[in-house]
């Protein structure tokens, strides 16, 4: 009898516990960026072994990946600039560059204002207006001064797209009313924001112009 008295609750507890096993939940495989105690650096993701090239990472087109012809920065874009390329460049610029260089490229971004020892230069100074595209590519890739390289965050194609957009920014700062194609209107008012315009790198959906009030007894 005492045996039964122990067995029944023991079985009950076992059933409950068995439902809490997490074997399927936490499977013994490596998820991205998982820890691995086997290696001294405790990373399951391994760096390439010296002298090997991963599939798809053979950078044969050296200009595309360095922006240099020989030792000199080249001026040409490795692919043609279309509207899509510029839009992609704008998007990537606003993500990765605007925090420091600001959305218009004057170097007065949010991050340096928090206490950089040196402010980033404006793209609209003469030296950078004249700098070739390959120079920008090299700086984005490898960094310069206190700016770190961005090759890990921005793929090469996007770096070129950003350069195309920087060129557009540079043009925009010198543009006049005569540069506006016929048939297009210059925006006269700033876009309106809902509430306070945040400093965010993503734009708030602009509020549309106020509609005329509907006075007819329409269906609600």
């Amino acid at each position: 009898m005492t045996r039964v008295k122990i067995l029944v609750p023991a079985l009950l507890i076992l059933t409950i516990c068995s439902a809490c096993r997490q074997d399927m939940h936490d499977q013994p495989r490596y998820k991205p960026q998982a820890r691995n105690d086997f290696f001294p650096d405790m990373r399951s993701a391994r760096l390439l072994i010296d002298g090997t090239v991963a599939r798809g990472q053979l950078h044969e087109d050296s200009y595309f990946y360095t922006g240099k012809i020989g030792n000199n920065p080249g001026e040409v874009m490795p692919f043609s600039i279309t509207h899509d390329v510029l839009e992609r460049g704008q998007e990537r610029y606003n993500i990765f560059c605007a925090p420091c260089h600001s959305r218009v490229g004057d170097g007065k971004g949010m991050i340096p204002s928090r206490g950089f020892s040196r402010m980033p230069p404006s793209y609209h100074i003469e030296r950078l207006q004249k700098a070739p595209a390959g120079y920008y590519f090299d700086v984005i890739t490898n960094g310069l001064g206190i700016m770190q390289g961005y090759s890990g965050q921005i793929p090469a194609k996007d770096r070129w797209a950003i350069i195309a957009y920087i060129r557009a920014l540079q043009l925009s700062q010198k543009a006049g009313a005569a540069d506006v194609p016929a048939g297009l209107n210059l925006p006269t008012a700033l876009p309106k924001f809902e509430g306070d315009a945040p400093s965010g790198a993503t734009l708030v959906t602009p509020a549309p112009p106020k509609k005329e009030e509907k006075k007819e007894g329409g269906v609600e």
Partner: peptide, 22 residues
């Protein structure tokens, strides 16, 4: 994000192209 206006993708750069947001 709200204070400095840094985009999600500045840090989580692989989120658009991979299964894993790094």
């Amino acid at each position: 994000v709200a204070g400095l206006g840094i985009d999600c993708r500045y840090c989580h750069a692989s989120v658009e192209t991979s299964a894993y947001a790094n």
